[in-house]
Amino acid sequence: MPELPTPDQTPRHRAPDEDEQVPGEDTHCAGDAPPKETTPVGSSPALTDGPRPGYERSADEPVRERLRDIFGISSLGLVIGAFLLHLGFIASYVGAFHQQQPHGLQVSVISDHNWQSYVANQLNAIPGKPVYAYAETDLATAKKMLTERRRQGVYLFNPNGNTDTLLVASSAGSSDAAAVELIFQQVAAKQGRSVQMTDIAPVQPGDSRGITGFYLVTGWLVGGYLMASLVGLSRGGKARNFRRMLWRLALCAVYAVLAGLLGTLIVDQWLGALTGHYWQLAAIGMLLSATASIFTMGMEAVFGVVGVGIAILLFVVLGNPSAGGAFNYEVLPQPWRFMGQWLPNGAGVDAVRSVVYLDGYSLGFHLSAMAWWLAVGLLVFLLAANNTYWGIRRPMDQAD
C-alpha cells in the first residue's frame, strides 16, 4: 500500500504568475515590510513594559523640556495676556460702576410768568453740572423730546405752591430717571419744596428696570464670538482654501439667523419680557451675532488664538460696562460714557430700546454703528483668512 503524504508534503496548486518556491528558501525580500507575528488563537497577547506609542514616562523627559512647555515664550505670552485681560476686566467694570456721577442730564423746565428761565439758571448753577436745564414753554414738545431720549426729565415748576412735578421716561433709561429724581428731590428739599414724579413712558411689565435689552444683546454677542472662537481653535484661524472660507461665512450667517430668531422667541413669547416687536428685535439679533462671529474670525485669522482675547476685550471688557444697560451713559464716568454708543454692545442696547420704547428714534445711527464693526471684521477676514493659491508661479524648490 502506498504511503500517504504528510500535511507538509500535500501538493498545493500555484497561481499562474507565482514562482515555484524552493524548499527551505526564505521568501522575504529586501525592502519588504517584516512579516507580522501572529498570536495563536486562544493564547494571551504578549505584554511589554512602558507607555503606549506616542506617550512617554515623566522620568524620561528632561526637566528643561517640562519648563519649556510651561514657561516658553509662546505659553508665557498667552498666560501674561490672559492675566492682563482679567485685570482689565476688573478695572473696566469697577471703574464704570463704582461711583456713578450724573453729568449733563438734560432737563426741560416749564413754568408760568417767565419762572422757567429763573429756575433753569438756578439748576445750571449747581456745582458739578449734574443737569443742563432748558427753559421751555411747550409741554407737548418737551414730552416728545423726553420720550425720544433727547431729554432725561421735564420739570414743571409751580410758582403758586410748594409742590412741583417731575416727568421722567424710565423706558429710555431707568438709571437716568432715578438720577434726575434724586437731584430734584435734593434741590427741592433745600428750598422747602416737594416733588412728585410721574413716569410718562414706563417699561413693559416683564422688563424689570429696563435692562432686559442689555442682557439680550449680551447673549447675542457672547454666543457669536464664542462660536467663532471654538471654530478657530478646532479648525485653525485660517481656512485652507477660498471655498472653505465661504463656508465659514455661511456658518456665521446661519448661526446669526438662528440666534436672532430663537433669542427673541425666548424674551418675547416664552418670558414675555419684551413683546410686540418680534421681527425687528430678531433682525437686530442677527446683525449683532454676525458682527461678533465674523469680527472674531477676522481677529483669529490675523493674530491666532490671541484674536480670541481681542474679541473678549472688545465685547466683554470694554463693551459691557459702557453699553448703557445697568447704568445709562449720562451717569457713567469717562471714557465709558463716550465709547459706549460706538461699540456693538451700546449700539445694540440703544437699538433695542429704540424699537421697543422710542418708536424707532435714532435707530439708523445705532444700526450703522453695528454695521461698521461687521464691515471691519468681514474685510479683515477676507484679507487674512484665505490660504487660496491664486496661480502665481514660484520656483519648484519653494515650500508650500
Rank of each mutant, 00 (worst) to 15 (best):
L251N: 11
Y118I: 06
D164A: 03
M396N: 11
L287P: 12
A82C: 10
V356Y: 08
A371Y: 11
P53L: 14
A140V: 12
I284M: 07
Q280T: 02
P7W: 02
A326S: 14
L85H: 03
L249H: 08
A96R: 00
Y329I: 06
R337W: 03
S117F: 01
I284R: 05
G42D: 06
N345V: 03
A239C: 03
A301V: 10
S322W: 01
D19W: 06
S229P: 07
V79F: 11
S354G: 09
T38F: 09
P40N: 13
S58T: 12
T388A: 05
P127N: 11
P395A: 05
A30D: 12
Q196C: 01
F214E: 02
G263A: 08
E20P: 13
L139K: 15
R209M: 14
I312D: 04
P2V: 11
V22C: 11
V316D: 15
I312L: 10
P321H: 06
P16C: 02
V231F: 15
T163N: 07
E37D: 15
D26Q: 02
V380A: 07
A326N: 08
S229I: 09
M299W: 05
N241D: 13
H103M: 02
F83C: 15
G364A: 11
W373Q: 00
A169H: 00
G285K: 08
V316L: 15
H86F: 13
F295E: 06
T264E: 02
D268Q: 09
F184A: 05
Q269E: 09
M245D: 01
G304T: 08
V195Y: 04
R66D: 08
G340R: 03
T165P: 00
G24C: 04
L374I: 05
L216R: 04
P16D: 02
D268V: 09
T137I: 12
F157Q: 05
G24W: 02
L332T: 01
V203G: 04
L378S: 09
T264S: 05
T38L: 11
D199F: 00
Q341W: 03
A177P: 03
